[in-house]
């Protein structure tokens, strides 16, 4: 894998307003989960869950591994149907409405190895019937804002982990959906790249707000990126604690995560997580 090229930082004007593809039609959509229960046959995955994410809000979900977080994201994205209760994205309740309003970024980048970076990023446009040349042009304009300029033609195997993750994120954004469901997007990265990517995502969301549900097992990541964090229990899942972050998406990540308020909340979240894992 190659070394990461210089990361774009907010000062360089990452994703200046209007650069990221706008969500078509509806401008801002919130997520509302009421009385949600989900089971695979006999296996209860989600016991009962109520969560609200306001439009352009960022909600973090942390919990012990195997606690049904990924299932919850798939429910939000319309890939699964609730056993009971409602998942509503701006009033859209059935699976197809949720699929239309939510872009889902899976845990692994899942870049298709037979496509170049730019064709991977442009998948949503191609699926929508945009011709190849036009789709490449549209995706290409965003490549430099993602620190990917010059790598348009590279195959997935030629990109570093951080770059792959950014291509995957660009692919998700280009779908132009108002809600983003992110499943441990940075879990596979090394600590330094992960910190850079967090700062980068924070900048992206400040410049171009979206409604986001972020699943992570990293409490610090959740508290840095999100407005609020819900700590979930082991399966069957319910909410153990809800916390608000002291200074979401601060410009300087290192400063933000070492601030006394942040450390206090992080300890509180860790305590809740320990309880949840019991």
């Amino acid at each position: 894998m190659r070394q990461d090229s210089k990361m774009p930082v907010k000062a360089k004007g990452f994703g200046a307003a209007g650069v990221l593809p706008a969500s078509p039609g509806e401008s801002a959509v919130g997520v509302s989960i009421r009385g949600l229960r989900h089971a695979y046959g006999e296996l209860e995955t989600i016991e009962r869950l109520d969560l609200e994410v306001p439009a352009h809000g960022v909600l973090g979900l942390v919990g012990p591994s195997g606690c049904g977080k990924s299932t919850l994201l798939e429910l939000i994205a319309g890939l699964q149907a609730p056993t009971q209760g409602d998942v509503s994205l701006g009033g859209g309740v059935d699976s197809s409405a949720r699929l239309a309003r939510c872009a889902f970024m899976p845990q692994r980048d899942l870049l298709l190895p037979w496509l170049s970076a730019i064709d991977n990023a442009a998948l949503a446009l191609r699926n929508r019937g945009v011709r190849r040349a036009a789709a490449r042009r549209e995706a290409g304009e965003l490549f430099q804002h993602f620190g990917l300029a010059g790598f348009e033609r590279s195959s997935a195997a030629e990109l570093s982990g951080g770059m792959r993750q950014r291509v995957a994120f660009l692919r998700t954004l280009i779908a132009g959906k108002p809600v983003l469901a992110l499943d441990e997007p940075f879990a596979s990265l090394d600590a330094i790249t992960r910190a850079e990517m967090q700062e980068w995502l924070a900048g992206a969301l400040e410049a171009e707000p979206r409604t986001v549900v972020l699943v992570t097992h990293d409490v610090e990541e959740a508290l840095y990126l999100c407005d609020g964090v819900a700590v979930l229990s082991a399966r069957p899942t319910r909410t153990v604690e809800e916390l608000s972050a002291p200074n979401p998406r601060a410009a300087n990540r290192d400063e933000a995560v070492t601030h006394a308020d942040f450390v206090t909340i992080r300890e509180q979240a860790m305590q809740a997580l320990r309880e949840a894992a019991k």
């Binding site: 890939l79 872009a103 889902f104 899976p106 899942l110 998948l123 949503a124 191609r126 699926n127 779908a175």
Partner: peptide
């Protein structure tokens, strides 16, 4: 199957 799910959320039809 994850790749197929990913495609569904990117509005892909069965044929796509």
């Amino acid at each position: 199957p994850e790749a197929k799910k990913m495609m569904r959320t990117l509005d892909a039809s069965r044929g796509q």
